[in-house]
């Protein structure tokens, strides 16, 4: 059972996804400052996806 987990991931592999998340959420933080309307919608999407991802990760493992 431990064989496939024994391979160590590199720093790049570990931080690739978090980096994308950080960039998207930073864009979301800034966009609502820049303008209204569509800019707000971009912000809601970019920041709203964070709690959704969290729930997805928790639920996916619970049901599997």
């Amino acid at each position: 059972m431990n064989s496939h987990r024994a391979t160590h991931r590199t720093l790049m592999q570990i931080f690739a996804a978090p980096l994308v998340v950080a960039i998207v959420s930073t864009a979301g933080l800034i966009s609502a400052l820049v303008g209204d309307g569509w800019w707000d919608a971009v912000s809601w999407t970019a920041l709203g996806v964070l709690p959704l991802l969290y729930l997805m990760f928790i639920w996916r493992r619970k049901t599997s």
Partner: peptide, 14 residues
């Protein structure tokens, strides 16, 4: 980083 060496992003060991 060290705690995720053997785990993929978003792993939850339920």
């Amino acid at each position: 980083a060290p705690s995720m060496r053997k785990l993929s992003f978003g792993t939850y060991r339920a």
